[in-house]
Design a protein around this nucleic acid. Structure first.
Lengths: 145, 145
DNA sequence: AGTGCAAATGCAAGTTATTCGCATTTAGAG
DNA sequence: CTCTAAATGCGAATAACTTGCATTTGCACT
């Protein structure tokens, strides 16, 4: 599915998000990059495109996307950094390469049954979970050998 | 299983960890507290016991325990904080109450089969994963009603 | 029991990632 | 086109953690 810039604006509007230059830029970067990105990486990509968006705006835009359910925020293992990725329909998880940061979606989410079992057993009201699996992708494995 | 202070020292020694006042304190706090603790909470507990341990020492001790495989470091959802908990034999995960931070172990780890499947499918070398499930415990659910 | 030294700690300053306050600018409804 | 609430840029602030270095301490070896 190839979408034009206009389509993206439309998509953001549909989610109650006013279209602005920073928002469009961040959204397109997230869409075109298959994988997870840190705020820093998004900022750098913006700069490489010859644009400027303030760092705090990047954070505010990302926070907005997360709030609206368009983007998922998680942690990159072994760092203090948050990383962001576009939410896919039907809740997936990431298999993350520790070397090149490439990600593969794990879907469907393997935890819905487990959550039900756990809720029944513990009487907790379960509201969410974080799952990330990490390792090294085939390419990086070769390089590291 | 009730263990004396001496037993704890012995246990640390067995893992190649020299026994010092800060290390014993942190270890005992982690053991006696059933749940996850942030560095800050550990620091506060030390203070409440009438002792003092420098904050950087707390971090260094925790990092050491993690390195030696005694303690697991994870993130508390919705914050920027790392939290720490004693590793149990046979790798478990936590069900965390977002309100009172009480945790329940989920064991055995439900992911080992999944990891094998994913490794076979993607040719990744999988080195680890993070899984946390969060929600509200029965007590907090009552209080919040 | 005393001694030496590598390792651990305390302290203060530094870093990193993220957030906030406020003045200015802008998207988009009317 | 105009007005206004919302978004942005900027700089400063904060939170959580890390580091460098001088001092202290555990403990192996007399």
């Amino acid at each position: 599915m190839v979408c034009s810039l206009e389509d993206h604006r439309e998509y953001l509007h549909q989610h109650g998000i006013k279209s602005t230059r920073p928002r469009n830029l961040v959204w397109e970067i997230l869409l075109t990059h298959d994988g997870i990105l840190s705020a820093e990486e998004i900022y750098q990509t913006v700069v490489q495109q010859g644009e400027t968006v303030n760092f705090s705006t990047i954070y505010r835009v990302l926070e907005l996307f997360v709030e609206k359910g368009l983007v998922e925020k998680s942690f990159f293992p072994g760092t203090q950094k948050n990383v962001f990725s576009v939410c896919h329909v039907g809740h997936t998880h990431h298999l993350i390469c520790l070397r090149c940061h490439k990600t593969v979606d794990i879907s469907p989410c393997p935890l819905s049954d487990l959550e039900k079992q756990i809720a029944a057993k513990t009487d907790f009201q379960i509201v969410g979970h974080h799952l990330e699996i990490y390792g090294y992708c085939p390419e990086c494995r070769k390089i590291m050998k």
